[in-house]
Design a protein around this nucleic acid. Sequence first.
DNA 1: TGACGCTACCGTACACTGTACTAAACCGCT
DNA 2: AGCGGTTTAGTACAGTGTACGGTAGCGTCA
Lengths: 221, 221
Amino acid sequence: MTTAASQRLPLSRERVLECAVALADESGIAALTIRTLAQSMGTKPMSLYYYVANKDEILDGIVDMVFSEIDLPAPHGEWREEMHRRAQAVRAALRRHPWAVGLMESRSAPGPATLRHHEATLATLRTAGFSIQLTAHAYALLDSYIYGFALQEAALPFEGRDTAAEITNPIMERFATGEYPHMVEIAVEHVLKPGYDFGDEFGFGLDLILDGLSRLAAGEG
Amino acid sequence: MTTAASQRLPLSRERVLECAVALADESGIAALTIRTLAQSMGTKPMSLYYYVANKDEILDGIVDMVFSEIDLPAPHGEWREEMHRRAQAVRAALRRHPWAVGLMESRSAPGPATLRHHEATLATLRTAGFSIQLTAHAYALLDSYIYGFALQEAALPFEGRDTAAEITNPIMERFATGEYPHMVEIAVEHVLKPGYDFGDEFGFGLDLILDGLSRLAAGEG
DNA sequence: TGACGCTACCGTACACTGTACTAAACCGCT
DNA sequence: AGCGGTTTAGTACAGTGTACGGTAGCGTCA
C-alpha cells in the first residue's frame, strides 16, 4: 500500500505556494508554470486549481510569502534602528527571492503579510513622532530605495564578492574603443578591485537617507 | 496600385522597435507578442524575424529605446542641477513606459543608448570632482531611488492627481475592521486629500539625497 | 441497501504563445 | 532573360493557462 500517492504530502494552498516559491528560487520565475509546479509536487496540473483560482493568485500569493519572511519592525523601538533593520531585512528577502522585485510591478492586490508589514512600518514612524506628511515622504523614499536597489541587484549578471571580475573582463574588451572612459574607470578602479561586492553599496545610501530623515524629524519634533 | 502593402511603410529594425514600444505603452508588456506586433504593423509574424533575431532582442531593444528618449546630462554643468534634471527625466521616461522598469530586471545586455546615458552621468559626477568611490556610491543611490520610485508608481492602481480617491474608497471599506489603523490614517489624512499625487513625493526624496551628496562632496573637495 | 451530495483530484481539449523550417516573391544586376 | 541575394509568408510544433467535465472515495439519510 506504499504507493507514491499515499506517500506524498497532501495538497494544500500553503504547500502549493511554498513549492511555487522554491521553484521560482531554483529555476527563475519564467520556469514557474502550472505544469512544472504540478510536476514538482508529484501531481497533475489541474489538481492545483482546487486550491488556487488561477496563476495570478499564485503570483500574488508568493509575493505575500516573501513579505511573511520579513520580521516586523517594533513600533516602540528607536525609529532609526528599526528602519535600518527593516531595510536590511527587506533587501535580504528580495535577494533570496529576486523574482519578487519584478513581480511587484504587476501585482496590485497586497496580501495580509504585506499589509501587516506596511502597517508596522507606518506605526513605527508615527509613534516616533513623525508627522503624517513626513511619514508618507519617508516611507516612499525608503521603499523606493530598497526596491530600486534590489532591482539593480537582481539585474546584475554576477553575484557577491569577487565574481564581478570574471564576468566583466570579457565585456570590458568591447569598451577598449575608448567610447566609455568613465565606465571603464569605475570598473577598473572600483568594481574590479578584489573584495568588491555591489551589495556593500546598500549601506551607504541607507545611512545617507536615514541621516537626512533624522535632520527633518529633529526639525519637526 | 494603391494596395495596403504598397502604402504601408517598409519594415526595418527601427520601425519594429518603435511599434513594439507603442504597443507596450498602449496594451501593456504582456500584450506584446510577435503576432500582435506583426498585426499592428500590417505584416505577418515571421517577417519580423528578418530584422530581429528573437523576442529577447526586441525586449533589449525597447529598453534601449526608452533610454534614447532621455536627454543626457552635461558633464561640465553644475552637478547638482544636472543630476536633478537627469533624475526627473528618467522618472518621466519610466512613467511614459511603465513596463520598462520590470523589464530591466531580466535584461542584462545594455544597448548603446543605455551605455551613453551611464557614461554621461558618470562623467558629470567625476568632472564635478567626485572621487571614484563617491561616484559609485552616488550613482547606485540615485538610480536605486529613481528605479524604485518608478516601480512603485507602476504598481499603483491609479494614476495622477485626485483619482486615488475613486479607487481607494472601496478598498478602504475592507479596512474598517481596524486592523490597519495607521494605513487608514495615512490614506484619509494624506492620500485621499484633494490634489494628492504620488508623483509629487519624488521631489522630496530626490532633494534629500542630493543634499546628502552635497555634504559629502563638500567634505571631499 | 441504495441514492445523494461533498471533497479532492484528474484527463482531455482549446486557444494562444515563440519560433524553426520551408518556400515563394521581389529586385537589382548582368 | 535569367541569376542570386534580400525580403516576406505559410505551415508546423512544442509549450502555455485553464475551461469543462469527469471520477473515486467519503459520510448521510431514507
